[in-house]
Design a protein around this nucleic acid. Structure first.
Length: 341
DNA sequence: AAACAGCCCAACCGCGGCGAA
DNA sequence: TTTCGCCGCGGTTGGGCTGTT
């Protein structure tokens, strides 16, 4: 393609890598309220230091409310196998026949599991030369009586704040303070409603056309059932766009330390929490204009410039009335006040 | 318990398609 | 008709997780 096209964005000016919970919530809230007519402009309007592509990918593959997560049913696997045979690596086309599934998810599933299964199947077919098609079409890890897991995820994931943010109930309870509770509640309500609105059929292969019709329905924007008024945006405003690199699904895992567990008072955890507190303006020093990131060893490193204070364009949210660097205020602020500490 | 290897998947990258100017 | 810019697709990668030695 000749000299190639210019980059979609200035990569030195955007954040890359894993998304933080605050970024996710900001993206969700923005899209639910304003939609995503223009991905390129969205990050700026939403106050995200991401390129539009990254936002789109995050939304489409992970945050979209109508996503089914985690497990492929036998019917879905059969459909994937059949459609791949017909279309090849046309993942988006295959995904269009599987409501709630993304092309990325299907692609990953294919590359990690199904391709091997198909190879094994063909090998065994050659070996046995028997009419085993019906039995072998689905991978052996598929249960016909129960949804199956391609990895070790559990039951269908209902995206609540807790599980979307990778926390158990006690951890969710721990982080609650009045402000955050409102955000959490908003998010939970949003998710519950959108879940209800998107309970898509899992019976796929039985009626591909029906599924296709479903898939071709335009994604309706499901409003956050809570009145998204000034309070909501104010809370979002107070959330940093770049928190620590605590990614969804990783909070509560080995890194960072799980504050919900007993015996968390080891030095590393304390240091982590101390740093976290500082990071969000709760500790002694709130160094401005620096983004801090916890590495594996919990050493604090600087990532670079933090985003500008959150600001929606053409949104009537009142302007922040202070010079406080909003990018640091009160996200996870209850952690240091955790009774267990 | 530590080191290593393989697996898995979220996220990134570059390109093609397509519509608007 | 050409050029430009955005969106979406498919391939690839990086790093966390898990199992094995």
């Amino acid at each position: 393609m000749g000299n190639g096209r210019s980059p979609c964005c200035d990569k030195s000016q955007v954040k890359r890598g894993p998304w933080s919970p605050a970024e996710d919530l900001r993206l969700i809230a923005f899209i639910q309220k304003y939609g995503h007519d223009n991905w390129r402009a969205l990050p700026k309007q939403a106050g995200l230091m991401r390129c539009g592509k990254s936002c789109r990918l995050r939304w489409v593959n992970y945050l979209r409310p109508d996503l089914k997560k985690g497990e492929f049913t036998k019917e879905e696997v059969e459909t994937i196998m059949k459609l791949h045979e017909a279309f090849g690596n046309k993942w988006s086309k295959i995904a269009s026949h599987l409501p709630g599934r993304t092309d990325n998810e299907i692609k990953n599933a294919w590359n990690t599991h199904l391709k091997k299964r198909l190879a094994n199947k063909k090998t065994s077919e050659i070996d046995s030369n028997e009419n085993q098609m019906g039995k072998s079409i689905a991978p052996s890890f598929v249960s016909s009586s129960k949804p199956i897991l391609l990895n070790e995820t559990l039951n269908p994931v209902i995206p609540t704040v807790g599980n979307v943010f990778g926390m158990n109930d006690s951890e969710v309870a721990m982080i609650k303070d009045p402000e955050e509770d409102l955000v959490m509640k908003s998010f939970d309500e949003f998710v519950n409603i959108t879940q209800n609105s998107s309970q898509l059929s899992t019976s796929v292969s039985s009626n591909v056309n029906k599924s296709l019709q479903e898939a071709e329905k335009p994604n309706s924007v499901v409003e956050i059932p809570l009145e998204v008024d000034y309070d909501f945006w104010e809370i979002l405003d107070n959330m940093p766009t770049q928190t620590n690199d605590v990614q969804l699904g990783q909070v509560g895992a080995s890194n960072p330390p799980n504050v919900g567990q007993e015996g968390v008072q080891d030095a590393e955890t304390k240091k982590y929490l101390h740093d976290l507190g500082n990071d969000f303006g709760l500790g002694a020093t709130n160094e401005t204009n620096k983004d801090l990131c916890l590495e594996k060893n919990n050493a604090v490193i600087e990532l670079g410039m933090i985003p500008q204070p959150f600001e929606f364009y053409e949104i009537s949210s009142p302007e922040s009335d202070s010079d406080i660097d909003l990018g640091y205020v009160h996200w996870w602020s209850s952690w240091p006040q955790n009774p267990g500490l």
